[in-house]
Design a protein around this nucleic acid. Structure first.
Lengths: 170, 170
DNA sequence: TTGGAAAATGAGTCTCGACTCATTATCGTA
DNA sequence: TACGATAATGAGTCGAGACTCATTTTCCAA
C-alpha cells in the first residue's frame, strides 16, 4: 500500500470516530471526508460502503476497550471498567449507536477480557460466584445504552451503578 | 372534528404503532399510510411532521404503561413491572427507539407510577429504603435498551434481572 | 336535498445522502 | 528523471423519503 493511501486511511478512521461520536451513526460520509481533509471518493475507495466504515471504527474501538480491560485487574477491576465504559458512553455515541453493525471477532475479544475481570473479582470475593459472563455483558451494554440516551449526571450515574454493584456483590 | 377525520386519526395511530414497532422509528410515513389504508396526505394532515406522529404514539404508549403500572402494587409490583417492560422491549422497538422524541408530560406520568410502585415495595421490605426513583427509572430504561439491542433469550433476561433485583433488595 | 366547509387524495417537488467514474495527481521503481 | 501503476478528486447519478397542493370526495347543518 502506497504511503499516501496509508496516511489517508488513518485520517479517515480518526475523522469517522470523531464525527460518529458526536452525531451518531446517521452522520454523513461527506462530513467525515470534510473533517479528514480528503474527497468523498477517497473515503469510498478505502471503505466501499458506509457500513464498512462503521464496522472498521467499531472494531478499532472494541479492540481498544478490550486492551484497556486487559490492563485492569484485581478485586475492583470489573467495577472500574464498568464505570469507565458508562462514562464514555454518555460522551460518545459511537459504541452504543452501532447496534446494526456487527464485528463478531472484536466483540468476543471484549467478552473474554470482561470474563477475565469477572473471574478476578470473584476470586477476590468482590463479586458473587454464581454470576456469569453473559449477564455481566448484558448489564454493561444496557447501562451504556441507558447512560447515552438518558443523559445521566454524575450523581445519577453513581447511584445507578451502586445498585448494580450491590446486585453483583457477594 | 368530522367523523371520518376522527376515524382516520385512530387508524393512523394504530398503523403507526404497528409499523414503528416492527421496523423502528426509521420506517417510512408512506408505510404507515399504506397499513392505515389512507393516502399519504391524510397522514400529514393529522400529523404535520413525522416527529409529531412519533410523539403521538409515544405519548399513547407511555400513558398505557403508566396505567398498567397503576394496576400493579404490593411487595412485588415493581418486579413484575420491570419484567413486563423488558419483555415488551425485546419484542417492540417503539418505546426504546424513540430517544429523540420527547413527551415530558407523559414521561413524568410514568415516573410517578413507578415511584408509587417503588414506595410500596419499600414499605413491604422488598426493596432497600435508600433507593430512589431516578435510579430505578434509569435502570428500567437501560434494561429495555439492552434487551432490545442484545436480543436476550429468556434465560439471559432472567439472570440479568436477578442481578438487578438483588441490587435493589434489602 | 343541497351547498359549502372540512377532509382525503396522490402525483409531484425537494432535499439529502450514499455511491460512481472519467479525469487528474501522486508515488515509487527502474 | 521517466513512466506506469496506484490513488485522489469531485461533479454527477440515483434512490428514498419527507412534505405539498390543486383537485376531488365526503360529511353534515340548514
Amino acid at each position: 500500500m502506497r504511503a499516501d493511501a496509508q496516511r489517508n486511511r488513518e485520517r479517515i478512521l480518526d475523522a469517522a470516530e470523531e464525527v460518529f461520536a458526536h452525531h451518531g451513526a446517521s452522520a454523513s460520509t461527506e462530513e467525515v471526508a470534510r473533517l479528514a481533509g480528503v474527497a468523498i471518493g477517497t473515503v469510498f475507495r478505502h471503505f466501499p460502503t458506509k457500513d464498512d466504515l462503521l464496522a472498521a471504527i467499531l472494531k478499532r474501538l472494541l479492540a481498544r476497550l478490550a486492551e484497556d480491560a486487559a490492563t485492569l485487574g484485581g478485586a475492583d477491576g470489573l467495577h472500574v471498567f464498568f464505570r469507565r465504559l458508562v462514562e464514555q458512553a454518555a460522551a460518545k455515541r459511537t459504541v452504543v449507536d452501532l447496534a446494526g453493525v456487527s464485528v463478531p471477532a472484536a466483540l468476543s475479544q471484549l467478552g473474554e477480557a470482561v470474563g477475565e475481570l469477572l473471574g478476578q473479582a470473584q476470586a477476590a470475593g468482590t463479586v458473587r460466584g454464581d454470576v456469569r459472563r453473559p449477564e455481566v455483558m448484558a448489564l454493561l451494554v444496557s447501562l451504556c445504552q441507558g447512560a447515552l440516551q438518558g443523559g445521566w449526571d454524575a450523581k445519577l450515574q453513581e447511584r445507578t451503578l451502586a445498585v448494580v454493584f450491590a446486585g453483583l456483590a457477594a
